[in-house]
Design a protein around this nucleic acid. Structure first.
Lengths: 242, 242
DNA sequence: GAGTCTAACGGCACTCAGTGCCACTAGCAA
DNA sequence: TTGCTAGTGGCACTGAGTGCCGTTAGACTC
């Protein structure tokens, strides 16, 4: 007897927030199992609701659409990302903050590997579900872009809006790439390592222009070596010169 | 009497490819007008079909879904992009090729400003249409990624897949940013200028490492100036040194 | 011009997602 | 006990999307 077949408590589960969360999870896992077993289109909302022991009408009180049930905790992720941006250290590099914040998504996927893998096969198979996933990714990509835009604008970047949109897209793409590779490996790869490698790539691509200025040092050959080192050290500020 | 209200030819329009195209356009423009006038959800497929002078069943022979009618020429754009990649000069910088190819989308939007503006207001207003548009963007972003991946792999890039995905996302984001700003201006901005500026930004971010190697020239102060110029010229190959 | 074949079309009926409405009832308060 | 509230289930309805089939325009043959 799988989890999806067990009967939910008789009535009024949703009276308490905890009960509501529980029924949401029950509906979600029942749906995923049915989708995998019988196919997405072939599964009706009636069947999902019945498997969770509730009426069809109740299903639509917990999820707006049939496909929403596959991305049950997406809203949760988005709000958590927004909160993370609010309490982020303003002195840190914005791109770096965005990268570490977006990896919240990876944590969520890793926390429920079983569902993540099933959802992965479904989104690869069913076109409409793939589109739905793309839409959800776009939603948190917008959150990234909004954060980056305000930060870039603070730094006096005239093209803050464009840079923010492009950087957000790059970060989201890197995140998705890591996520997909990890899921394809069945959750066996070292996701943290590949994530930091991927984010390093976008980090060096989008570091603000001031930080990637090429230093051209014009020095007389008569200059004593210590002074050369001092001048270079000043140019590179807190980076090591040796 | 608007275009959407005129009656289409009586029967068998779709027998010839030209007639099929014509009816597609008639359905599309009828739909856009009705969506703008009465709202997207409030407009039924029956009404669209009736406005174009055909039966409801025929509508679904021309478009798979109700929202497809808003992105009528999307498939055309995608295949045209694929063809452009096939005949692209292999010696050109892949990122540059991708940028100039993706601007095909801008051409299509500019070619039918009226519909583009109406679709823009609709995609901003109706959530499901925004999602649909995001899905279409993702589709050509995948085409970009596939092209960039093969090119990067040819160049011996070990992280070709990741770099391709990230660069494709950045290019698509830049393209969309330009497109949206242009539509927000009502089609008055200089779209070509802002496009080249936006693509310059992603170009410098994703130029392959070999092309952005810093040239460090170590030269004796005794070297005659003409020889200095010659050596620098060699180092920069076909770029100007002056 | 008459007969024939093909394929677009329209219409009908059906499934299913999603919604509004309402009656029912568990649980709480007075 | 008597209301009151809110979650629930059932019913009926709209509309998207699909399968099926009879009709007919148009092309092709003789």
């Amino acid at each position: 007897m799988t989890e999806s077949q067990r009967r939910a408590p008789a009535t009024r589960v949703g009276a308490t927030p905890a009960g509501r969360r529980q029924l949401r999870r029950a509906l979600s896992s029942a749906a995923v199992d049915l989708f995998v077993a019988n196919g997405y289109e072939a599964t009706t909302v009636d069947e999902i609701a019945a498997a969770a022991g509730v009426g069809r009408r109740t299903f639509f009180r917990y999820f707006d659409t049939k496909d929403d049930v596959l991305f049950a905790n997406h809203d949760e992720i988005v709000t958590e990302m927004e909160q993370a941006f609010e309490r982020a250290d303003p002195s840190r590099d914005p791109v770096e903050v965005a990268c570490s914040t977006v990896s919240l998504v990876l944590d969520y996927y890793a926390a429920d590997l079983d569902v993540s893998l099933k959802r992965f096969t479904l989104t690869r198979t069913v076109a409409s579900l793939r589109d739905k996933e793309v839409a959800t990714v776009d939603r948190y990509q917008r959150v990234l872009a909004r954060y980056l835009q305000t930060r870039f604008a603070e730094q006096g970047d005239g093209t803050a809006s464009l840079r923010a949109a492009v950087a957000a897209a790059a970060i989201a793409a890197a995140n998705n790439h890591v996520l997909r590779r990890w899921l394809r490996s069945g959750g066996k790869d070292d996701i943290a390592a590949s994530a930091s490698r991927a984010f390093a790539l976008v980090g060096e691509a989008f570091r603000p222009a001031s930080a990637e200025t090429t230093v051209v040092a014009v020095l007389s050959t008569a200059t004593p070596l210590p002074e050369v080192m001092a001048r270079l050290g000043a140019a590179f500020q807190d980076e090591d010169v040796d």
